[in-house]
């Protein structure tokens, strides 16, 4: 009777090379830029092209999206190192600041094109709920930072199993 091979009792790990991590991180930039810059900017441009004033500045959206993408990329490259936790915290702080900026502009009023009707839309509660997401990743980043400070290579066998 054959027994499936379980992980060894003494855990090893195989960290990808820096070059490989940079290559994969570079590929990740494409969907990240699409998600954080391309889609929001396209949606805002669509509104602007229909003479509807936009609730957020395209410049702010682009800068914030680029910052989030850059930190996320650095975080991926630094995942096997002790910088991973602090970079996770930094990434979450940037997202929290961005979401707070959106929260401050979450009452959107505009005049409907070709009418004299003014429409007010409020999405404050949704953005407040959305704050849960970076808050949780911020907490995760802090936990990882603490874990790396106590036992620097403890998580590597699980992040990079052999």
């Amino acid at each position: 009777m054959s027994t499936p091979s379980p992980p060894p009792a003494h855990l090893g790990y195989r960290v990808p090379s820096l070059g490989w991590r940079i290559t994969v991180a570079s590929l990740r930039i494409i969907p990240l830029m699409l998600l954080f810059i391309g889609l929001p900017a396209a949606a805002l441009s669509f509104l602007a092209s229909h003479s509807i004033p936009i609730p957020l500045s395209i410049l702010v959206v682009t800068v914030a999206g680029a910052l989030i993408t850059a930190v996320s990329t650095a975080r991926y490259v630094a995942k096997p190192t002790r910088l991973y936790g602090p970079l996770s915290v930094l990434s979450s702080v940037i997202v929290v600041a961005y979401v707070l900026y959106i929260l401050g502009n979450s009452t959107y009023a505009f005049t409907l094109p070709n009418t004299n009707a003014t429409l007010h839309v409020q999405y404050t509660e949704l953005i407040e709920l959305l704050l849960i997401v970076p808050a949780l990743t911020l907490a995760a980043g802090i936990v990882t930072t603490v874990e790396d400070a106590r036992t620097p290579t403890e998580r590597l066998p699980y992040d990079y199993p052999p």
Binding site: T115, T118, L119, H120, Q122, E125, L126
Partner: peptide, 10 residues
């Protein structure tokens, strides 16, 4: 979650 309002003059 989404309060909205409209004001128009006719």
């Amino acid at each position: 979650l989404f309060p909205a309002g409209i004001a128009l003059n006719q």
